[in-house]
Design a protein around this nucleic acid. Structure first.
Lengths: 218, 218
DNA sequence: AATAATTTTTAGATTTGTCTAAATTTATTT
DNA sequence: AAATAAATTTAGACAAATCTAAAAATTATT
C-alpha cells in the first residue's frame, strides 16, 4: 500500500499519541497534525475505509494492526534518516527533525533497507529513541527518569521527552545531549530540583520540570 | 521561494526540453510531465504569476532567470542523490532514477550542501550528467558521439542519451556503463553499425541506433 | 435530571491540480 | 486565399485535503 504524505502524518501522530494517552481524541490529534477537528474527522473516515484505524463516531479510534505496521515503517524511516543526518552529514541532533519529517515520506523500501545497512543497523536515533527494524521490532532499554536516579551513580542520558525548542535551548546551555554522562549530587526536597554533575561542566541545578524530561540508562 | 512538487516537475521538465528543442510546446511538456495539454496551460499561468516563466498564450514560453535557477537547483539535488545512491548505497546506476525523482523535492538547502560535501563535491552523476554546483554552474566536458570516434582510439563512456529500460537492458548485456573504456575497431558503411572492443569483453557490433545514444570523452 | 459546556460530526465552501469537451488560434493544404 | 487540420486555451467539473459555521452527541455542572 502507498499512502499520501497527509495520511502518513495522521497515522504517525496517532501512533505517538497512543503511546502516551490511553484515549486519543479528535482534538488532540488535530493539534498534533496542525489542523482542525473537522478535518480529523474527515481523515478518520478515509483511514477507516483503508482499514488503518478502527473508528466509532463520537466514541473512539485506534490504529488497526495494519495501521500500526504502517506507523512503525514511517517512524523507522524518520529515525534512520535522523541518524544519517547526524552521523554522516554532521548535523546537530536538534537540527534534524524537520528534514527527517520530509525524508520519512520517501517511499522506496529498498532505499531504507540499504540506508539501514549503510549505517550499520543502528538501534537508536540521535535523540535516543529506538529505531524499529524492518519487521517493526525495536530494542527496549531500561530507562530511568533522571529524577529517580540513585545518588552519585553515573548515568548516561538516553532520551529527552520534551523536544520543544525551549527545552533544547536549555539543554544546549547545560551541554546536555544524548550520551552525556552525569550523576546526581543531591536532591532538594523543597521543590524537587536536583544538583547534577555533568561531564566536564560545573555543578548545575535542574528544576524538577526539566529533570522529569530527561531519561537515562545504567 | 518554496514550490510544490508539481510546480518543480514542470520547471525541471521545461529546462530539460529547452536543452533539446529550440521551441518547447505545450504538447511536448504535457507528455514530459505525464498530463494533458489543458493542465499545462493552467500551470503555465500559475508559473507566470510566480515569474518563473515568460508566457505568451498561443505563442511561446521559456524559463525566466529565476525559473532557470530553480530548475538547476532541482537538477542538482536529483544528481547528487543519484550519486549518493550509487556510490554510498551500492545501487546500480539504472535503479536510482525513480528514487531520486522523489528525493529531489526535499527542500532543505543545508541538507543538499552537506550531502555535496559528504560526497566530495562530485562533478558528474552516475549517468555521466554534470552536477550543478551551489551557484548553478556545471562542468562542461567535450563529449563525442561514439559514432564519430576516431578508429582504434580508446575512449570512456560518459553519457547515455536514451535512458529507456530497453536501452539499459541492451547496455547491461554488452556490459557498457558510465566509465566503460572502449574503442572502435571498424565501421560498417552499409548500415552505419560499428564493431567495438569493450574492456574485457569479446568484440561486439553495435547498431547505428545504439551507438548514436552513447557519448564518450577523450 | 435538566441545563450548560464541550467535543465531535456534518454541511457546504475553498484551493490545488487535474480532467473532458468545446472554442479559439495557428499552421497546413489544396 | 479559403478550407482543413492541428495545437492551444477556455469553461466547467472533479477529487483530495482543508476550512468555517452549524448541528448533533457527549460530558460536566448545578
Amino acid at each position: 500500500m502507498n499512502f499520501s504524505v497527509s495520511e502518513e502524518n495522521y497515522i504517525k501522530s496517532i501512533y505517538h499519541l497512543q503511546a502516551v494517552h490511553q484515549q486519543v481524541t479528535t482534538t488532540l490529534l488535530a493539534e498534533a497534525v496542525q489542523t482542525k477537528a473537522a478535518s480529523v474527522t474527515d481523515m478518520l473516515k478515509k483511514l477507516q475505509v483503508k482499514k488503518l484505524v478502527h473508528y466509532k463516531p463520537y466514541k473512539s479510534f485506534t490504529l488497526t494492526e495494519a495501521g500500526t505496521k504502517t506507523a512503525l515503517e514511517i517512524i523507522r524511516k524518520h529515525r534512520l534518516w535522523e541518524y544519517f543526518l547526524v552521523n554522516k552529514l554532521q548535523f546537530e541532533w536538534n537540527e534534524v527533525h524537520e528534514i527527517a519529517e520530509e525524508l520519512e515520506h520517501i517511499s522506496s523500501r529498498e532505499l531504507i533497507n540499504r540506508l539501514d545497512g549503510f549505517l550499520d543497523h543502528p538501534a537508536f536515533d540521535p535523540h535516543g529513541d529506538p529505531i524499529p527494524n524492518s519487521k517493526g521490532k525495536m530494542a527496549e532499554l531500561k530507562q530511568n527518569n533522571l529524577i529517580d536516579l540513585p545518588l552519585k551513580k553515573m548515568a548516561s542520558v538516553s532520551l529527552i521527552k520534551d523536544q520543544s525548542n525551549a527545552m533544547l535551548d536549555l539543554l544546549k546551555h547545560y551541554k546536555i545531549s544524548i550520551g552525556t554522562k552525569l550523576k546526581i549530587n543531591r536532591r532538594f526536597e523543597f521543590d524537587g530540583s536536583v544538583e547534577v554533575k555533568i561531564d566536564k561542566m560545573p555543578d548545575a541545578i535542574l528544576s524538577k520540570q526539566v529533570a522529569q524530561n530527561i531519561y537515562c540508562t545504567q
